[in-house]
Nucleic acid binder design. Structure first.
Lengths: 244, 244
DNA sequence: CCTTTGTAACATGTTAGCATGTTAGTGTGG
DNA sequence: CCACACTAACATGCTAACATGTTACAAAGG
C-alpha cells in the first residue's frame, strides 16, 4: 500500500459517509457510482492526493468491484484520479499546469460562444440574463456567496446554451473542473464578489448592444480575474499540488 | 439482440480481425483494449451503427469481459459508442449536430492557440512549420493524399504544442473526433488538397509576420472549409447518421 | 547501527459464472 | 390472417474469487 512521502499518513478511520447514495442517480450501477464519486471529488469531500480504496468505496456504496472499476477508469480518463496499477488510486492533486490549461480552454470556448451569439441575441435571451443578474444582485446584498457562485455558474452556462450546441456546457465544465476544484480552497477575497457582479453587468451591457468585440473583451477580463487568486494557492498549500 | 430497423441485418461473419493486437499498446489490459477499440472505431473499421458485441471483442483480443467493459465505458463517455443496457452496444453513428459542435470547439481552441503564440513565435518554431509545409508541398506533387492529411494534422498539432499546454492537442483531437470520422467518408474533391496547402501557407505567412489577427482569420477560413464538404454527406449517406 | 532480504498485507487487474433485461421467433387462439 | 403470449437466444450488468504487482515491516547479517 502506497504512502506518498510528502503526505501525512492516512488513517483508516471508520469513514463518515462521503458518497451520495446511488439511488440519487439514474442508470447502471457503474454509471451511478461514477456520478457519486465524481461529485464527491469535485466538492473536495476527498482531499487532493488522498488514497481512494476501491474496497472502501464498494463497502460504502454496497456494490462489487466491477462497477467501481468502471467508474474509476472514467474518472481517471478525466484526470480526477490517478491510478497506480496494483498499488493505489489517488484523488488527483491540483496542478497549476492543468489549472492554467483549463482556464485557457474555458476562455477559448466561452469567448467563441459569446462572439457567436452576440450579434443575434434574442430579447428572450436577454430577459433570462437580466433575471439572473437581478438574483445575483440580491445575493450580493445578502452576502450569500455560495448562492452567488451558483448564479455565476448558471449565467455562464446560459451563454453557452444560447449557441444551441448541446454539449458545450459539459465541455466547458470539463475544462473548468480542475480550476473549480482549486477555487474552493481560496478564501473569499473582500470586494471580489461585488467586482464579479460588475463584470457580469458589463457583459450584459455588451450583449444588449449586440457588440461581439465588446462582449469578448468584457468576458475575457472577467474570466482572467480568478487566476490572479489561484496563483498564490500553490505557495500556501503545496501539499495539494503536484510538482509540475 | 437488438436489430435497428433502418440498418441492414448484421450477419455473424467469422470476422476478419479488425482490432490491433494488445501487445502493440502499453498499460493494463483494460487500457490496451480501450486504445485498440478506439483506433478501430476512428478508422471506421466498424461501420457507424454497427453492433459491437463484448463477447466477440473478448474472443478477438483474448481477454475477459471486465477489461472490455471498462474500455467500452470510456468509449461511451467519449461518444464513440452507444450502450443500450442489456441489449447491445453500437458504434456511434455520425451526428451532424456533434460534427458542428466538434468543429466549433476545435475552431475555438485553435484560434485561441494561434492568437496566443503569434506575437512571440520563435524562429525555431517557424523553422518547424516551414519544414512541415515543405513536406506537404512534396506530397501534393506526388498526389499522396493520405500522407498529406497526416502532415496537415501534424501542422495543427504543432501549433497547439507551441502553447506549451500539454493536453491541448488531446482536447482538440477529442473535439475533432466526430468530424474526422465523417471526413473519411468524403471522396477527395479535385483541387481541395492544393487549396488546403495554400491555406496552410497563408497561416505560415501570418505567423512569420507575428500578426495574431491575420493568423486567426487565415486559420478560421481554413478550418471552415471542411464543413462545406461534410454537409452533403448526410443527404448521401443517411444510414450513417443519427436523426438529430 | 545500517543494509539487505524475505514475507505478509495491501491494492488493483482479471476471470468465470450467475443475474437481469431485451428481442426475435414460434405457437396458439380468435 | 393477425394479435398476443411464451420461450429461447442474445447481450450486458454484476458478483465472488483468483491472479498479479507493490509496499511496508520485520528479521538477519555485516
Amino acid at each position: 500500500m502506497l504512502q506518498r512521502p510528502d503526505v501525512e499518513p492516512q488513517e483508516r478511520t471508520p469513514a463518515a459517509p462521503r458518497l451520495r447514495k446511488l439511488d440519487s442517480f439514474p442508470g447502471s450501477l457503474a454509471a451511478r457510482t461514477y456520478q457519486s464519486l465524481r461529485e464527491a471529488i469535485l466538492h473536495l469531500a476527498y482531499r487532493p492526493g488522498e488514497l481512494l480504496r476501491k474496497g472502501d468505496i464498494c463497502a460504502e456504496l454496497g456494490v462489487s468491484r466491477s462497477p467501481v472499476s468502471e467508474a474509476i477508469a472514467r474518472l481517471a480518463a478525466e484526470g480526477l484520479v490517478d491510478v497506480v496499477p496494483q498499488a493505489g488510486t489517488f484523488v488527483a492533486r491540483f496542478s497549476m499546469a492543468e489549472i492554467r490549461e483549463g482556464a485557457f480552454l474555458r476562455e477559448a470556448i466561452e469567448l467563441a460562444a459569446i462572439e457567436m451569439i452576440a450579434p443575434a441575441i434574442t430579447e428572450e435571451q436577454l430577459v433570462q440574463l437580466r433575471r439572473n443578474i437581478r438574483v445575483q444582485e440580491a445575493l450580493v446584498e445578502d452576502a450569500d456567496f455560495a448562492g452567488f457562485y451558483k448564479l455565476d455558474a448558471e449565467m455562464h452556462a446560459m451563454i453557452l446554451s444560447f449557441t444551441g450546441y448541446r454539449k458545450l456546457g459539459q465541455v466547458a465544465e470539463s475544462a473548468w473542473l480542475h480550476v473549480n476544484r482549486a477555487r474552493q480552497q481560496v478564501l473569499p477575497v473582500p470586494g471580489r464578489v461585488a467586482a464579479t457582479l460588475e463584470e457580469h453587468q458589463a457583459i450584459l451591457v455588451a450583449l444588449e448592444a449586440r457588440d461581439p468585440d465588446r462582449a469578448r473583451e468584457e468576458l475575457r477580463w472577467h474570466l482572467r480575474q480568478l487566476m490572479t487568486f489561484l496563483v498564490p494557492l500553490e505557495r500556501e498549500r503545496p501539499d495539494l499540488f503536484d510538482p509540475d
